[in-house]
């Protein structure tokens, strides 16, 4: 493994029952980069993320995080590795019965010996990092979707993880809120050097934040393209890649025209 590789995915296979979603997926994530995993609905993006973060065991293949094989290591090393990662879930996954501040404090209290006042201060600092300083005592149900995402981000950043996984961070947000989240992700990456793995299909955020992208395809059940987003858009010859970047339907309007011509 190269020194600057932080996650290594080797020959990963994911199945739901008999249906294979991903087959033989192999790639590396480098330290400090923002990698965007891209693809249409149902191509296995979120599944891949769940496998990379150890939430689901793959049917075949290995995932190394910081040189630890999380698919086969013992419980203690697995827990240790979990401490190095943070996840922002698509639904934010804030605990509904706790306030925003309590949610952020949860991992801090569990894993540090800080006093109550220090925890409070740290929570406030984390919340100001995501621009939520005045919402400590709100319940998740009382704040907007964008705020929930930011609160979830603050919680996943609570223990300064080395790697942050983000599952569709801008899904369901208005363009302004989405742009804010993107800017925040970029800013946090620059300031803290956290490696970020983002799953999304939001084209705007891809060009805004990604250093590198990996494109998955439903039919190929794996990676069809990888590289710099702008370069891929300009130079890729792959039909599926171009469809995606140009936002073209797979059955384009001209096909409809042809069908009509068939009538005449």
């Amino acid at each position: 493994m190269a020194t600057d590789t932080i996650i290594e995915v080797k020959g990963l296979e994911a199945r739901y029952g008999e249906l294979a979603v991903l087959e033989n997926v192999t790639f590396d994530v480098f330290k400090g980069e923002i990698l965007v995993i891209l693809g249409g609905s149902g191509c296995g993006k979120s599944t891949l993320l769940r496998h990379m973060s150890g939430l689901t065991e793959p049917t075949a293949g290995r995932v190394y995080i910081d040189n630890v094989d999380i698919t086969s290591c013992d419980e203690e090393r697995f827990q240790e590795t979990l401490r190095k990662i943070g996840i922002l879930f698509q639904s934010s996954a804030l605990l509904g019965s706790m306030t925003v501040a309590e949610n952020v404090a949860l991992p801090i209290i569990e894993y540090t010996e800080l006093s109550n006042s220090a925890v409070n201060n740290l929570v406030r600092m984390k919340l100001s990092m995501v621009d939520l300083q005045n919402y400590e005592n709100f319940l998740p149900s009382e704040i907007s979707g964008g705020m929930k995402k930011r609160a979830g981000l603050a919680r996943s950043l609570a223990l300064n993880p080395k790697i942050l996984f983000l599952d569709e961070p801008t899904a369901g947000l208005d363009p302004v809120a989405a742009a804010e989240i993107d800017a925040l992700i970029k800013h946090l990456n620059e300031q803290t050097g956290t490696t970020m793995v983002i799953v999304t299909h939001d084209l705007e955020s891809i060009f805004g934040v990604a250093h590198r992208i990996i494109m998955l395809d439903k039919d190929k059940k794996g990676i069809i393209a990888t590289g710099d987003p702008q370069l891929l858009k300009d130079e890729s010859m792959d039909e599926n890649v171009q469809h995606f970047f140009k936002r073209e339907p797979r059955v384009a309007p001209y096909v409809l025209e042809e069908i009509l011509d068939g009538f005449n």
Partner: peptide, 16 residues
């Protein structure tokens, strides 16, 4: 409900 909203996954990832 927590299971559906990924809250249990979040707990798991936070090491709880």
């Amino acid at each position: 409900t927590m299971q559906i909203y990924e809250e249990i996954d979040a707990l798991f990832v936070m090491g709880f």
